[in-house]
Write a protein that binds this DNA or RNA. Structure first.
Lengths: 335, 335
DNA sequence: CAGCAGAATCGAAGCGCTTCGACTCCTCTC
DNA sequence: GAGAGGAGTCGAAGCGCTTCGATTCTGCTG
């Protein structure tokens, strides 16, 4: 491996000069810069990451903690993760992938070893065990999701309360009075994952306002589970004419089942989904939906991290405004 | 941050002793070990990753290059990535997530900076641009997937040729003579991604052997695209009674469409999928399928990497044996 | 009982980089 | 024409760890 010293020798300057050319932290004459850059090119020099980290106490790595539960809302998670990785690169950072498996201890390990300059946490629970450790560690961090107590934390998330409200508003405007919410898997609520609960809160609040009856049921997703949930919904509320679906894995099964039962979408039943655009447009019925802006969430999280690391800190909660796109799955309530 | 030196002082030993306690590379008396470990506990010491990397020229990081194309066979990619991250941890490694975006340059950057001890490449094309750089860099690497030229490379993959053959065998045994392969998106073939082509090769070879007629069509996935593909298949081969589906995103749409057309599965038409177990079991019809063992692939890749880093190298191609599970989507060909 | 092997520990030399003075020229300014 | 000040460069001191002798103490062997 080529070292900085070799580059310096090749260019006929001192090591520190090469370092300053690389970092731009001091002024360097054009001629020297050119010479050094040329040597770097020619020798194929790459700064050694470890040495750099040691000397500067900056690793240029952002740790990303994604939930282990690979079976849950996977596409969204993946999209966020990829967006984080991609945006991070544009800011000169690499991303370390941590699965939830290691649990809260990962926070301690990463912070303690200075492996990463900052952390981005996904799948945040309302009372997340990682948060106390995070605060204590004093490391820069950004959450994708919203815990119960956000004091001193930077958070990025879709405004799920507004999302819920938006869905209700849309259905209410179309005249629907009885609406069922097909929620995430029960485990998601048990873990008190913020977004799921907040969506329902938003739905409930707006429903009260508009005089709509809401039936909320968790659903595991998949065909069989969705069939069960749907059956129970119609048993309990035969007059249901609208559905708000939060679990992506229940979207297609639901459409399929409704069709089989002879309930036409949107003539007999309207469906609004909360899901990525791709899911909405590729479903068997083009779905009216509120998009989950996974890419944007990942990007914003990285931007916040970078800003904080640069000292331009903002301990803020940034809620992205939900956008509802009307497609072919919603229509006026049947008379 | 607590340093090794502080631990040493606290325990009343020299720094090197602490280091040896940590690494176990020299014998340490039980009493000293205990004392040092106690100090580590008490001070909450974590070795500094950068310093360690610098001194040992080992970062304990494995770089994972995943394709940028987030819209393709996402669940599988995600599952592999998570399995890699998880297994890596059990061997004491962390995982750096690289998106394809940076392209082949990423290989050079990572190798040059010694950021990672090894790389795992996913989504390998037959003539992958990254491979020459990889060979040149001399870094330890394992591919998940199979390029055209595997000399000197360690590869892990499902045996997709055998997979294709297995599907054909199953359908042939049930008496099907005209079978359509619903393939991956056209772009996948254009990029000459090995697994897609090899599956078709396997299908073709076994079909010749069993006297079966094969029609292979790429398919973008999603409802609309699948509908188009399916229409064209039946136009061209109205006698088609079997389907082999490789594109996960076409599975559910296909079942849905067949049902709408009044073709019962498996009475009129049989469907075999190549997909993760979860997709197969959660579909509207429980699918006969060859599982894509994503977890296992990720795990094996890590194990290979670890073995190579430990000097127990194997420049081998490891093909996982496909397993076909019969479920409810295949039956005897209609008379 | 001299001598030697092995166990346990220490000291010091880096690993390759960043960064902080310090130094040398210039170019202005009054 | 002397002093101020800035631009450009260098040297050296670490950053926190690993690792390679060297050293000290046993406990044996012949």
């Amino acid at each position: 491996m080529v070292t900085l010293a070799e580059v310096a020798q090749h260019a006929g300057v001192s090591a520190s000069t090469v370092s300053y050319v690389l970092s731009g932290k001091r002024s360097i004459s054009a001629s020297t810069r050119k010479r050094v850059e040329h040597s770097i090119q020619q020798l194929g020099y790459h700064p050694n990451a470890g040495a750099r980290a040691l000397a500067s106490s900056r690793s240029n790595i952002i740790a990303l903690m994604v939930p282990l539960r690979t079976d849950m809302y996977v596409p969204v998670m993946m999209e966020i993760a990829m967006a984080v990785a991609t945006s991070a690169r544009t800011h000169g950072y690499d991303v370390l992938l941590l699965t939830g498996e290691e649990g809260p201890a990962a926070v301690r390990r990463i912070a303690g070893s200075s492996l990463a300059d900052a952390m981005i946490l996904m799948d945040v629970e309302l009372h997340d065990e990682r948060l106390p450790l995070l605060r204590e560690s004093g490391r820069t961090a950004v959450l994708i999701g919203l815990p119960a107590e956000t004091g001193g934390l930077t958070c990025v998330d879709l405004d799920f309360e507004a999302t819920g409200a938006l869905c209700v508003e849309h259905l209410a405007a179309l005249g629907h009075r009885e609406v069922a919410v097909i929620g995430e898997a029960a485990a998601v609520y048990e873990r008190h994952t913020g977004f799921a609960e907040r969506t329902v809160d938003g739905v409930r609040a707006k429903a009260r306002e508009t005089g709509m009856r809401i039936l909320h049921r968790p659903c595991e997703g998949g065909y069989a589970a969705t069939a069960g949930t749907l059956g129970r919904v119609f048993d309990e509320r035969p007059g249901t004419t609208g559905f708000i679906v939060q679990n992506e894995a229940a979207v297609e099964p639901l459409l399929n089942l409704l069709q089989q039962q002879g309930r036409a979408v949107p003539e007999d039943v309207s469906v609004v989904a909360v899901c990525p655009e791709q899911v909405a447009t590729q479903a068997s019925v083009r779905l009216t939906s509120v998009a989950i802006p996974a890419q944007e969430m990942g990007r914003r999280a990285v931007e916040q991290v970078v800003a904080k690391l640069a000292g331009r800190g903002t301990d803020e909660v940034e809620l992205l405004e939900p956008v509802l796109t009307v497609r072919a799955s919603t229509g006026p309530a049947p008379a």
